[in-house]
Design a protein around this nucleic acid. Structure first.
Lengths: 204, 204
DNA sequence: TCTGATAACTTGACGCTGTCAGGTCGAATG
DNA sequence: CATTCGACCTGACAGCGTCAAGTTATCAGA
């Protein structure tokens, strides 16, 4: 007599996310997932077409969490440039705190989802609505800084692309590759200042 | 009557590399590898302790190839800054041409190998001798540019870290995430110029 | 209250996988 | 000629994703 189960789909998603966060996506098996969720190994097939779709859904969850962290970090200060910097630092911190999530999100395992038109129209191609939302804050941040007159009035999309790529590189390489005596934070700061100074309004 | 086999280890490595390059590391199975190499499924265990080590060896091969491409690209010009730029562009082009290799090299699947001391002493932590060699050209490029007086005499390791992180971010995000109307190359150029201008000798 | 349908699972089975113990066999060594 | 040894093969095992075919609880309609 099986007990009634509520919201199994959400339970599967969060359980899978937990498993991936702690052991990595390669250690996720549907059978272990079923075991932990208290259902059979084939139960996920009622909510996801296959394992790849389940993983893609977890990836979307990761983008949502990343977006939340960026948004929260960018709310602290009132200085537009500091807000921008804090948002990017939150990006790097997310990669450090959730390495398996971050890896998954940018690994191509989510390739099944096609970039949608709204994202493309905004000049950034994302694999999901969640991914797009994660960066809305950064785009707004650049526009705010421009409106405040502390960032030159260059194409904001170009500036966002440059800053994002730089930040992403730091985030990916920080834990195993970059090594600077004064720390990864000093590396980020140096490049960020260089980029902002270039795009910024030079002192008269 | 098994025919005599020469250099099976190398054959296994190159066959595995080919399989990974075309189908990705997840599609590599020891059984298929044995089939293609004309040996049994367990033959690789005489040269590699397990599948993970085989993959790590393929990753090291990837770093060697990346190093060759960077070196070749940085040999074309005599202008130190252009040599540096061309080396970084070769990095991006490698990621575009060999996405599965590039993914593998920075995926953490090579985590078993520990960074060695020479790499650490140079200020950069690499997972293998091959990885270290791949970037020797870039470090030299920064030092050359400094010697030629076209890059400010800041800490060269800081400059390399910043340029590398930026380039890596572009390489990772280029195919699926970055989208700028004038192309990824324009994004790279904008950031590169900004960084070089900052670290460069300003016009009088 | 009975009938039938449907949603929400489970079970059995298939072929695939990495790994290992134990075998085979030719070449080298004493 | 006997022994050892490197190089590889075979059989076997547990775990995997996936699918067809069940099973059971719930509920609508007559």
């Amino acid at each position: 007599m099986p007990r009634p189960r509520s919201n199994l789909e959400e339970l599967l998603l969060t359980t899978a996310a937990e498993l991936i966060a702690t052991e990595g996506v390669d250690s996720l098996s549907l059978r272990e997932l079923g075991r932990r969720a208290g259902v059979s190994r084939a139960a996920p097939y009622h909510y996801f077409t296959d394992k790849a779709e389940l993983i893609a859904r977890v990836g979307a969850l990761g983008f949502r969490r990343l977006g939340e962290r960026i948004g929260a970090a960018a709310e602290v200060s009132v200085d537009p440039l500091i807000r921008l910097r804090d948002g990017l630092l939150a990006y790097i911190e997310f990669a450090r705190a959730e390495p398996h999530f971050f890896q998954l999100m940018f690994s191509g395992a989510l390739a099944r989802e096609r970039p949608d038109d709204r994202g493309e129209a905004a000049g950034l191609a994302f694999s999901s609505a969640e991914a797009r939302g994660a960066f809305a804050t950064l785009i707004d941040g650049v526009r705010d800084a421009q409106a405040a007159g502390v960032l030159r009035d260059d194409d904001p999309l170009l500036i966002v692309n440059v800053l994002w790529a730089y930040t992403h590189g730091i985030a990916v390489l920080a834990d195993r590759h970059l090594k600077y005596e004064r720390g990864t934070g000093a590396v980020f700061e140096a490049g960020f200042n260089a980029l902002v100074e270039h795009y910024g309004i030079l002192p008269p």
